[in-house]
Design a protein around this nucleic acid. Sequence first.
DNA 1: AATGAATGAGGCTTCATTCAT
DNA 2: GATGAATGAAGCCTCATTCAT
Lengths: 220, 220, 220, 220
Amino acid sequence: MSSRIRALPDGTGEDPAAEDSRWPELLKIAATTFAERGYRSTSLQDIADRFGVFKGSLYHYIRSKEDLLYEIMRGVLSDSVDDLRRHAGGEGDALERLRSVLRGHVRHLIDNLAETTVVLHEFGQLSEQRRRSLPVDEFHRTFTALIAQGQREGTVSPDLVPELAALALLGSVNHIYRWYRPGGGRSPDEIADQFATLLLRGLAHPNVPGSSIDGDEESA
Amino acid sequence: MSSRIRALPDGTGEDPAAEDSRWPELLKIAATTFAERGYRSTSLQDIADRFGVFKGSLYHYIRSKEDLLYEIMRGVLSDSVDDLRRHAGGEGDALERLRSVLRGHVRHLIDNLAETTVVLHEFGQLSEQRRRSLPVDEFHRTFTALIAQGQREGTVSPDLVPELAALALLGSVNHIYRWYRPGGGRSPDEIADQFATLLLRGLAHPNVPGSSIDGDEESA
Amino acid sequence: MSSRIRALPDGTGEDPAAEDSRWPELLKIAATTFAERGYRSTSLQDIADRFGVFKGSLYHYIRSKEDLLYEIMRGVLSDSVDDLRRHAGGEGDALERLRSVLRGHVRHLIDNLAETTVVLHEFGQLSEQRRRSLPVDEFHRTFTALIAQGQREGTVSPDLVPELAALALLGSVNHIYRWYRPGGGRSPDEIADQFATLLLRGLAHPNVPGSSIDGDEESA
Amino acid sequence: MSSRIRALPDGTGEDPAAEDSRWPELLKIAATTFAERGYRSTSLQDIADRFGVFKGSLYHYIRSKEDLLYEIMRGVLSDSVDDLRRHAGGEGDALERLRSVLRGHVRHLIDNLAETTVVLHEFGQLSEQRRRSLPVDEFHRTFTALIAQGQREGTVSPDLVPELAALALLGSVNHIYRWYRPGGGRSPDEIADQFATLLLRGLAHPNVPGSSIDGDEESA
DNA sequence: AATGAATGAGGCTTCATTCAT
DNA sequence: GATGAATGAAGCCTCATTCAT
């Protein structure tokens, strides 16, 4: 919300939350439209039409089109990184926490499909300054750290390069935005389980088949 | 080349003297620029500047900007699908062929980084008709078929859903275009090996550790 | 007015405050310019210059250049067909009504010289769909019907083919846009009288010289 | 042909007529295309396509696109004016010669439909100098003179203004290009007869019904 | 907050014409 | 005569943004 413009000519502008209620709606509309058509192929007219105002009226909410893009990304990344930190800092060994992180990431992505699509597809449209201000690297850093820790713990195969393995995991999961559609036959949980199973087995030390990699549903 | 515009009033043949034309050069410039800035953020003026002609002169080579996008994709996909078919139809069991497919796919992606970036990032900018004309589904279909065959052969874990596992593999590999940069410290071969190792171990039947999944190094 | 572009997000009504809009002024400028130089030889820049706005601002009024052409034609044809129907359905025998139609047509053409010029000279520039939506055939149909009725009444020579005679009349009258210039020495009424006299005498049954063909002056 | 360009670097250029045979073909193609789509809406590419050469090759025949327009008009007007003069200077009284002129004009128009369409529809696209060089006024002048002479001879009604009556006649006949289509059910002769009948009766002195106005087929 | 007309830059595309081969 | 690549101007149209009301 930091980008909200307020004239506040009389200094009273408390910004009552109730009055302000169209901002989340606008962000959702923008995210959905950017996700469907792409940022550059979406005009503010498109968004104004869906939002039900005239084009010029959008400037009561934003200073520029890029504000919309940035706010969408900031919002969803903020949530997503919170999730990431919580799961990465949870209980269990590195692989268990990685499973938790992976499942959380899949769920978060699916629960915020439009916003995540915007982050993953339109990041390059932001100014460099704004790109640098967003914590996008934290995912790769966290994945890499957990994999390296797994190697130290002996549960992750030592022949993998943690940085590359992290990229493989991230790619698999982030790719979901390209094919997942609600009602598409696979439940979010099934997807999360399948991906975690495949990727964690891929990481695991081949000589430790009985590790935690197969998760809760399969006891060792 | 089929998009070259020629009146060919005498019907003597298709595109004579194509060898010395600047068409491949133009395609490469367009691919590079689209990959760097995005299709919608690239103007024909940008491309004409790099190509060294006036904007309007591009229309000796194309009928529309979208032609450039399409021809880039058609070219690289054609090669890529040839590769895919060759590797998928090669020798060995399903996992061995899947390894071959994965490594080939990684190599091809890296060797055609700009073009692949365009395919993977700008596919949605094509008209629906053109999207349908490109064999993009063949990757997922082939991966799925090989995984399913691996399950029948007993080398792929039966608890994986082939369609989802295929998407995990594709996501990992396709994601490479987002982070690979030539001279970035990791060689294409190392990347291909690491990804194949991780992903094939992830697919493999947990109780068959001695399968072919670890490739050439033939570890026990 | 139907072509005015408005998002009208609140659905409150069609084109409020149209009274003070510049739309009629724009239509008049466009008609005049199209009549002077031809539709294809007139650029939107020409029109914008005369209208006193930037080129792109015209798109607050139209969706395309052809919209201007169409709206000019629709407006003047609507009036003209109303006139036609009124005169054709008036009092008197067929020849009297035909005289009324002819004079009305001449007057309307001269009073709307630019718009009529556009209709008669640029009709072929419209899309086929828009051409079909305009009631241009009604003139020929009405003329033909009145002539045929005159034959049944015995006042029109039976050796004329009504369809061809109607085309002769229409040609004479429509041709006026090519030579009439205000202040050119001939008053609209004189032109209307002369044309009606000549054409109605041409239609009249040669053996019925005392018919109504000479109009108000009731000469024997 | 005066506009034909010839390099004649060796001074030998006799321009053997046989070799030169594509010039009339080109003119015909240009006339047809201009008539169908309009001068400004026809590109030289369109014409080159139909002519079977590349666009640039047209410049071996013309110096500019307007040359084509001009040569089409010059050619057909030259013929047409010859016809006009021949018929206007023929035997008989003014009305008889006017009948001959009218029928000749109708026939010539129909026999040169594309070229006449170009003259009548695209005259305004010529430069002013070229417009002035073409004998387009001769038709109106000749019609006016014949009508005035008819008045002196007593066969044309004295209440008509010759200039206006001439415009009525010209309008009827010239209008034919807008509706005549070969194979359309009315033969050129029928059209010529009907138009001459109607228009000459319209001119004729009402009190001289037995004049020559009804032509050869009807003896008095 | 909203409106809606206008801005001004820039985008894609067309096209008559030139010219070296 | 022909080619075909290139020119350079111009055309139509889009759009983020501004602003008086």
